[in-house]
Amino acid sequence: MSVAVPACPNCQSSDVVKNGRTRHGKQNYKCRECGRQFVEAPQWRMISEETKGIIDRLLLEKLPLAGIARALQISELWVQQYVNQKYKRVEREVQVRPKLKSRLTVQMDELWSFVDDKGNQQWVWLALDAATREIVGVYIGDHSAESAQTLWQSLPSVYRQCAVIYSDFWSAYPVALPSKRHRAVGKETGKTSYIERFNCTLRQRVSRLVRKTLSFSKKLENHIGAIWNFIHHYNASLPAISSCPL
């Protein structure tokens, strides 16, 4: 009894012959009309731009990559490779609206995280404009004064020239920040409430930062890329306001 040979998916010709087997053991076919080689019911399929857009939006929510792959019924390996390339291209510099040279108020804080295991601590240092709520400085590194200094240097020049900076009493800040512009305050003052609230937002939206999770990063570059990706989205989504009540 002869076995029906499938039509060519490219030109729909029925002039198709068997052409060996793939490395996975599936029967391979070749079309004599257009030369296309194919298998029946292929597992591989082209990922549409629409699906990529959905993935980009899901990466901004508290979802692991395996969950995204399951929800969209695509390969987890493909999602990981897509994310690797996406995070490699993410810009590592804040994008903020232009500011006039006038008194500015910045709140700073640091957020604990880790990569691969809890022994590899990576602290997320953040600076926030108290008026516009924009994230105006970011650095990811250790918990030292050198990291605090790098956070300071990551601020746009107008902030380094004009801003008064409020932080907690962590010893790295007085070493790294100009003494005339730095104010160490307690939580009861409310002077760091906006940055502390953003820390909570970041933990709730970036699955790699959730304290009890299996979504932690195994690669530092992706860890940094995921945080920067969310921060760019966050800044872009803020309303254009000139000032907010403190």
Rank of each mutant, 00 (worst) to 15 (best):
C11A: 07
F230E: 01
Q12E: 14
P174A: 02
Q95C: 05
G190S: 05
L59R: 02
L177A: 04
W112K: 14
Q43A: 04
G67Y: 09
S75G: 12
I224T: 08
V138E: 01
S2T: 06
S13P: 02
G119S: 10
E33S: 11
I47S: 00
F216W: 15
E33W: 07
E91I: 15
Q81Y: 08
I47P: 00
Q27D: 10
W125Y: 13
L209G: 02
S167I: 01
R160P: 06
R36V: 07
T213H: 12
I135E: 01
T213S: 11
Q153H: 14
E221P: 00
F230A: 01
Q149A: 06
S207K: 12
V39F: 05
Q122V: 07
C8D: 01
A172Q: 00
Y29E: 01
A226E: 04
L155E: 06
R70V: 15
V3C: 05
C34V: 11
V106E: 00
S217I: 00
P9V: 04
Q37V: 12
D116V: 10
I241A: 07
H223K: 09
G20I: 04
Q27Y: 02
P9N: 04
L220W: 11
K88T: 09
A236E: 13
E110P: 02
K26V: 03
R92F: 11
K86N: 05
I165A: 06
L65R: 01
L151I: 11
S215Y: 04
T150R: 12
